[in-house]
């Protein structure tokens, strides 16, 4: 492969890997929004928290794999507690109250993280198998990013199966379209909410662990990646999983090629893309008119 093509391919895979991570965060956000009507501004902070938990687990056990499995689960449990204690009480107070509450939550999480782990970047080591390069038809490519793509795809397939092939998935999809009716049919909607919130946080947790070895763990992680995830949900249409997927991949590619060609102004590209989409379709790419 000549250098130019290999650059394009490498940046393309980079973009897809980043897009997959974005999708892991955005999918949780968008499902929660679709079902409960809550845009969880603390989602980005929870995503970052998972990275810290994983760092702590690795520091204690020394195994990346334990952290990879355990940290997202702990994050999910944390999400369930947050839903039970804070969010359940204020679902009735309109979107303003919810946004402000979750904003407060994210500030508290960020503050606590700084208390416990400080503000410096914490590096994280991946195990031997995931280090190094792999040869893709003449292109040397880091294994770890391929691993991220593979893992995200696995989770994605699991989610789709769960959502479209099981009874629980059916209930969730029904609740997205009309939760009062589902509640009236005798299904315990608050319990389903709690579960969905937990799963959403679990997804963000996986993303948090996945990016931690590349970007290291630091308090600015929430702003840096989380902001992109919010833009994805907004552009893809609130509550639309397909929209979140398509826009995530587009954003991943935009950001990786943007870094290549425009370097510093890459973040601007996404906002411009969002502005164009919202100017044409105010409800987002896949959004339905309320």
């Amino acid at each position: 492969m000549d250098p130019t093509t290999s650059m394009y391919v490498a940046q393309g895979i980079h973009g897809i890997a980043y897009g997959m991570v974005l999708f892991l965060i955005a999918s949780g956000l968008t499902i929660i929004f679709g079902m409960m009507g809550i845009l969880n501004l603390a989602h980005a902070a929870i995503f970052m928290l998972s990275g810290y938990i994983c760092f702590q687990i690795i520091a204690m056990t020394g195994s990346f794999w334990v952290g990879l499995v355990l940290a997202p689960i702990l994050t999910g449990i944390f999400g369930v507690i947050v839903e039970k204690v804070f969010i359940r009480g204020i679902t009735a107070s309109g979107h303003l109250g919810q946004l402000i509450l979750t904003l407060g939550l994210s500030m508290v999480i960020l503050g606590l993280v700084k208390v416990f782990w400080g503000t410096q970047s914490l590096p994280m080591q991946v195990p031997e198998i995931l280090q190094g390069m792999v040869n893709l038809g003449g292109l040397e490519y880091p294994i770890y990013r391929l691993f991220i793509i593979g893992m995200s795809l696995t989770v994605l397939v699991l989610m789709v199966l769960l959502l479209f092939k099981t009874r629980l998935g059916k209930i969730v999809r029904a609740a997205v379209s009309d939760r009062d009716m589902v509640n009236a049919l005798g299904i315990n909607i608050p319990l389903v909410f709690m579960l969905v919130f937990g799963v959403g946080c679990w997804l963000a947790g996986i993303a948090g662990v996945a990016v931690a070895p590349i970007l290291t763990v630091f308090p600015g992680l929430a702003d840096q990646v989380g902001m992109d995830a919010f833009i994805v949900v907004c552009t893809g249409g609130f509550g639309s999983l397909a929209g979140a997927f398509v826009v995530s991949i587009i954003f991943g590619l935009l950001s990786s090629y943007g870094v290549q060609f425009l370097s510093q102004l890459a973040p601007v590209l996404m906002v411009i893309f969002m502005a164009v989409v919202l100017a044409i379709r105010p409800n987002g790419l896949f959004g339905v008119k309320e």
């Binding site: 845009l39 979107h95 946004l99 906002v271 969002m274 100017a279």
Partner: peptide, 28 residues
């Protein structure tokens, strides 16, 4: 013209994004 077409959560998020955009622009 852009932001008055939306309301609620979308309005808040668009502003979050634009605010961040200007922050990044000012830094760069």
């Amino acid at each position: 013209p852009l932001v008055t077409r939306v309301s609620g959560t979308a309005f808040a998020m668009i502003h979050l994004a634009f605010g961040q955009l200007f922050y990044v622009l000012a830094l760069k």
